[in-house]
Amino acid sequence: MNDKGKIVAGLVIFLVMVTFPFWYNLGKAAPAPEIVLSAQAKAAGACVLPKAEIKTEHMQLLDVWRDTVVREGQRVYVNAEGKKFDMSLSNTCLDCHSNRKEFCDRCHTYASVDPYCYDCHIEDPKENDQ
C-alpha cells in the first residue's frame, strides 16, 4: 500500500493551516492604528485616570460608573487628584473624545473588540442636540 501521497497532502494542508496568518497577511502591512486626539482632549491635557490606567481599565471604570449612576443615583466621580467629573459616557468621555471613529473605534476594531456601549449610547450626542 502506498499512501505516502495522501499523507504528504494531509501534512501540507495541516502546515498551511498552521501558518495561515502568514499567508493571509502576505503583502499587507497592518500597522497599529494611530489614534487622533480631538482639540478638546488635547486642551484638557489629562483624562480621568492616568493614560496607562485609562487605556487598560476604561471598560471597568465605565461599568462602575453605570452601576453607580443607575443604582445609587450618585453622579459625581472624584479621581485621585481630587478632580470632579460627571459620571457619563456621553457627556464626559465623548465630550472630549468627540471623534469616536478616530479615537474609540480604531483600537476597538484593531483588537476586534465590540463593546455594547454603543448599542444604546448614540453615535455623537452633539449631533443629536442640533
Binding site: 496568518p21 502568514f22 493571509y24 497577511n25 499587507k28 502591512a29 497592518a30 500597522p31 497599529a32 492604528p33 487605556k55 487598560t56 481599565e57 483600537c107 484593531y110 483588537a111 473588540v113
Partner: peptide, 18 residues
C-alpha cells in the same frame, strides 16, 4: 490587563515581518 494594541502590533509584526 495588558496593552492589547501593543500586543497586536507585535503579533501582526510577527506574521508580516514588520
Amino acid at each position: 490587563k495588558v496593552d492589547i494594541v501593543g500586543i497586536k502590533a507585535l503579533t501582526m509584526g510577527l506574521v508580516t515581518f514588520s
